[in-house]
Design a protein around this nucleic acid. Structure first.
Lengths: 207, 207, 207, 207
DNA sequence: CATGAATGAGCATTCATTCAT
DNA sequence: GATGAATGAATGCTCATTCAT
C-alpha cells in the first residue's frame, strides 16, 4: 500500500519498533486532523498527543502533507475492494445495495478519524496525490452507480431512476454519519446502515 | 438580521456605498472560505479576490473571525423560517417532506458559498457564537424530525421508523449536494430535490 | 512661539475658527499622550476624543510627530522665562529657591497633560527637535543650579553642597508630582511646593 | 521568584543552557524597553540585540507582554524586603531614612534597565498583573512613610510634617536618578544617596 | 472644511521544517 | 533515536498617512 517512510533504517528487528512509532504518529495525526481540520491542526498538536517533541515527528514522517496523504490513503483503503467483492457476489440488487451501504459505513466505526480526515481534508493534498485519490473515488462511485443502473436494467429498481444522483444521494447520506457517529446515542453502524437502507430501498411511506 | 458592521458612520446616502463594499468583502470571504476552509484561507486571499490590499479589509470587517460569523449567519438564514412555514402549511406529510427537501436545497443554489462555509467551518467560530448557531441547527433538525414523527403517528409513514435517523439521513443526503452542485452536469436543484425525495419517500424499488 | 500649522488658510476671521480647532486637537493629543504615552496612543484615540474622524486631524496637524512637538513646546513653555525672572528678582537665595520650586510646579496644575507628555515622551521626538528642546532643558537646569551655587557662595547654603546633584534632586522631586498630582487627595500645588521646599531647605529633622 | 518559562522541558543539565538563553532575552528586553518604552520597542529590536531572528524569542518567552511582566518583576524585586529589614533594624530614624534612600537607589546601579522599565512601563501591563504590582508599590510606600511618621512621633522629625508628601518627594527624587544615572559624571549611587539624604534630612541651609 | 476610503509598512505571533548533537 | 534550538516565511491585524471628493 505504499506507505512511504521518512528515513527507513533497514533491518527487521528494530524496524518493528520504528514502524510502531510511525503508526502511532499517523494515528495521532488522523485524530487531530479529524477534529481540527488539516490547516487548523499544527504538528505540535500531533506531538503533544503523543507526549513527544514537535521536531521528533520528522524522524518518522517527512512532512505534514505526507502525514495527510498517509492518513487519507488509510481512510480510503478497502472501499473499492469490498465494493468490488459485493458486486461480484450473489444476491439481488436490493441485497447488494444494502450490503454496499453497510460496507460503506463500517470504516466509520473502525477508522473513524481516518475516514473523516479523508472526507474533510483530502482537497488540501498536493495536486498529484489529490488526483490520484480522486480517481479512486470516481471508480468507487461508478462501481456503486453500476449496482443501481444494473438493478434498473434488471427491472428490480424503478425505471427512470437517475442512478448517478441516487448514488450521490446514498453515499452522501452515509458520509453524513461521520459527523455525528459517536455522538448520537444508540446509533450503531449496523442500525444506521439498516435504517438508511430501508429508507432508500423501500421509502418512508406506508405501503 | 443583525449583519453587524465594523465601523458604520451614520448617514444614509453614502452609507449605501459602504454597505455595498462591505457585502462584497463578505461575499469574497464566503467564496474563499468555501473553497479553502477557514484556516486554509488567508485574509490576503480575500483581498486578492477583490483587488484590494490585505489591510483594507479591516475597514469593513473587524476580524477574520467576524467575517466567518457573518458568512455563517447568512448561511443559516431562512432555513428555520421556511421550514416552519412548510410545517404550518397544508398538504400531506409526504408533500411536506418533499417541500422541506426542496426548501433545504434551494439555498445551495442561491447562497452556495455561504451554506458551504457554514457547513464546513462553523465549528471554528468562537464558542459563544458557535453555541448560538448550534441552537438554531438543533431547532431546525427537531422541526424536521417532527414532520416525520408526526407522519408516522398519522399513519402516513411506516411505523417503527426512527425519525431521528431518518432526519439525519435526509439532511445529510441533501447537504452532500453542496459538494458537487455546480460540478455535476444537469443537476439542477429542482431535479436533485425531486430525485432525492422520490428515493426516500417511495424507495428505489419497483412496486 | 512658532506653532507651525499644517495648511494655514490665510485670512483672519476664518483663521480664528481654524486655530481653535487646531488647539483642540493639540489638547486632545496632549491628553492621550499623557495617558498612554506617545507610542501607546494612536491618532484614532485623539480623533475619538474629539468625535472627529482620524483623517481629519491631518487638516490641522501635519503628523503625529509634529503633534508631539507642539505638545512638548507648550509643555516647556515659560519655565525658563519665569526662572529668569525669579533669579533677577529680590530676596534671599532661600526665598528664591522656594519661589523657583513653586514656579516649577505651577504648570503641573495648569498644563498637566502637556508637561507630563513633555517629561515622558520628549525622547521620542525626531533628533533635531529633541536637541533643540534638550538645550532649553539644560539652560533651565543651569539657571536653577546657579541659584544654589550662588547661595553657597553667599554663605547662605551649606559649603560643600553639590549644586548639580541638589538641582537634579529638587527638580526630580517636583517632577515626580506629575505622576500623582490629581490623585493624591488634598495635595494642591501650593501645599506640595511648600512642603517640598521646607524639606529641602530646612531638612526633616527637628531643630 | 516565579520567573515563569515558556516551555521548560524538564531536566537539569541541559536546562541550564535554556535558562541562560532565557535570561539573556529578558535582559535584552529590559534594555530596549528601558530605552524606547514598551510600545516604542519591537520584538525585532530585542532579537537584533542578540543577533537572533524575531521568531526565535518565542521559544523562550510566550509573548511581549510576558517579557514586560518578567522584566518588571525583576525590577521591583527586593525593594520591599530590604526596606522591611531596615525598618526592623537598629538606629535612629534619621539613620533609617538615610539607609532606606541608599537601599532604594542601589538597584539603579545593579539592575538599571529593569528598574527603569518597571517605572516607565508598568502601566502597560495587563490589568491583573498591574494590580498585583501596584499592591507591592503601595505597601512599599506605606512602609517608607511609616519610617517618617514614626520619626515624627518619636520627636526626631519635625512635628507637622506631612509624611505622605515627604515620602513621595523623597522617592521621586531618588527615582529621578534613573533618568540621568550613568550620564552625570562622577555621580555614583553612594554619592547620590548621601547628597540626597543630607539635603532632605538636614536641609540645604547653613546652620 | 472634513471625510470616507484606502494604502503600505510594520508588528506580534505561529508554525512547518531543519539539523547538530 | 530523538531532541533542543533555531529559522524563515506567512498570518492576522494596526496604524500613520494620503487624497479625491
Amino acid at each position: 500500500m505504499m506507505r512511504a517512510r521518512a528515513k527507513n533504517p533497514a533491518g527487521s528487528a528494530k524496524d518493528e519498533k520504528y514502524r510502531r512509532r510511525h503508526d502511532e504518529i499517523i494515528d495521532a495525526a488522523a485524530a487531530v486532523f479529524a477534529r481540527k481540520g488539516y490547516h487548523g491542526a499544527s504538528t505540535k498538536d500531533v506531538a503533544d498527543r503523543l507526549g513527544i517533541r514537535q521536531g521528533s515527528i520528522y524522524y518518522y514522517v517527512p512532512s505534514k502533507e505526507a502525514a495527510l496523504e498517509q492518513v487519507c490513503l488509510i481512510g480510503v483503503e478497502g472501499f473499492l475492494r469490498r465494493l468490488t467483492a459485493i458486486r461480484a457476489g450473489g444476491g439481488s440488487y436490493t441485497e447488494k445495495v444494502r450490503a454496499a451501504m453497510l460496507a460503506h459505513l463500517e470504516p466509520t466505526r473502525d477508522r473513524h478519524d481516518y475516514v473523516r480526515t479523508f472526507l474533510g481534508s483530502r482537497h488540501h493534498l498536493p495536486p498529484a496525490i489529490r488526483r490520484n485519490i480522486a480517481r479512486l473515488t470516481r471508480d468507487y462511485e461508478r462501481l456503486f452507480e453500476s449496482l443501481i443502473s444494473e438493478g434498473v436494467a434488471a427491472g428490480e429498481f424503478r425505471a427512470g431512476l437517475d442512478s448517478r444522483l441516487a448514488t450521490l444521494g446514498i453515499l452522501g447520506m452515509c458520509n453524513a454519519a461521520l459527523t455525528w457517529y459517536g455522538i448520537e446515542e444508540g446509533a450503531t453502524i449496523e442500525r444506521i446502515a439498516a435504517e438508511f437502507a430501508d429508507m432508500v430501498l423501500d421509502g418512508l411511506k406506508q405501503r
